[in-house]
Amino acid sequence: MTDYKPNEMMTIAAARALGNDDVCFVGIGMPSAAANLARLSHAPGVTLIYESGTLATKPTVLPLSIGDGELCETALTTVAVPEMFRYWLQGGRISIGFLGGAQIDKYANLNTTVVGPYDKPKVRLPGGGGAPEIATSCGEIFIIMAQGKRSFVEKLDFVTSIGHVQGGDSRAKLGIKTKGPTRLITDLALFEPDPQTKEMTVVSIHPGVTREQIQDNTGWQVRYAAKVAQTLPPTVRELEVLRDLHARTARVQGEAA
């Protein structure tokens, strides 16, 4: 079997979650790598949308920013940003939102705003961007994040975008009809919300990863589904497409200098 890195396993596992019929609102960074891997491998028909207004874009290299020229040039069309957020996102045209974050809690609420108190922050993070409304307007949400004690925390310093809020039916009680986070893909495992409590629960462990490792990189007591699968390792083809994509991106970004 081919060697691979935990980050590659994470990106590939995330890509597998997307299908041909999905219309996906893509965040920059890891969500973008996963979404484009899906498009370049098993889901050539997937519709990718970036918040810069590019609809059904097919970049040949990964964009560094959310509005690179490549996204616009390869898109079906590009709309202005107010239209993007009003008609397409708020209008309910997007089935999946793909997010990352700096901090996540067990109900998959996310913080990308601040570490420490808001008025006297230890680390001022970039902020919400599109996430607060992506999290509630898309049909469902996939989250991709590498695990660690500082990022998988018991309590968020700031709620930038909601997942399952306090668990149970607390999300629905806010009048929100969309599903919220249905998958959390990490470098160690796959989580899905428990049907009742809505706590993100491990349903599949990546090859070679132990339960102890998962707990050591999580700030809350990790729960497991009754039946836990082992994630299929990356196939040769998946790794090839992903590495090609990264190599092409590095080459083009180097040339642009």
Partner: peptide
């Protein structure tokens, strides 16, 4: 608009 629901903003 329909926004900010459930957040700390």
């Amino acid at each position: 608009f329909r926004g900010y629901r459930g957040t700390d903003f």
